[in-house]
Amino acid sequence: MNRGGTQFWIGAILFLVATFAMTQIIGNQYPFFACYVILQFIVLAVAWNILGGYAGYVNFGTSAFFGVGVYTAVFLFKAAGAPLAVQIAAAAVVGALMGFALGLLTLRMQGIFFSIATIALTIVIETSITNWRYVGGAAGIQMQQPVAMEPFNSYVQMLFFIQALLVVLAVATSRYIQNSWIGRGLQALKDDELAAECTGVPTLRLKLLACVISGALMCAAGAPAAMYLQYADPSSAFNLNYSVSVLAMSLIGGTAHWAGPVIGAILLGTTQQLLTVTISSEVNVLVLGVMLVLFVVGAPEGIIGLIGKARRNRNEGEG
């Protein structure tokens, strides 16, 4: 366990050094545009998995949290010209509060009713933002990128590195939860909520905690998106595609382990980037649909599950 911890943190530091080195060496802006999106999906998928994977509450409201993150940043920037760090921190706080509210409102619902309620919440929030003139309403709002801070040459490079920091934060949080008593409690209530209660697990409180953490991370991941695109509008910020993509990433990677969503997000995120560039965004959605169906039907435990199975088979073959 301890050696695993050291290895994990060495890996995390190497990852950050590598991303930082990229910003200093590569002059072309395109790789940062593309990789930013993938990093953003890693944060979203890892955050989603804390509630959806560990606790088994399938949240279709990823786009609600993401969109609220986007608009928290938009609002703060327009109202006070707040710096990026403040935008992200504020988005995390708003996301935590929103997760708490969502939890109180919906966590007594079982399974599919929870999922439907999260879709409903997304549309209700999207409609409210659409009708909020100050942040641009349905037409959206243009955002002017400020000058990048030292040592970054461009704002996109800076956003890229900040998203990399969020990746480390999200993954470390998710990994901690998985290995701690919180993770054990969530796993128990995912298996059987009544049995968990009767074994002493405070199910409602744990679910609320998962909601708050997951919500804070998702909102934080959304906050830099407006600056990245230099534009925000409700129908793209709250697009259902985010929710389904993130869900698909976690399911494809495997929900039982923190690494699952990371693998899924890299795999599906890269595929989507390539497809959008080379073919069209429609085909992108088609691939998303097909991958989702294939994995749900063929490999319910995701890639992590497949690896585990292969490993067990090999061990049995040897023994």
Binding site: R184, Q187, K190, D191, A196
Partner: peptide
């Protein structure tokens, strides 16, 4: 109603 994704030991650890 066991915690079916866990081993017997893990069930008790909960």
């Amino acid at each position: 109603r066991p915690f079916k994704s866990m081993t017997v030991a893990e069930n008790l650890m909960v």
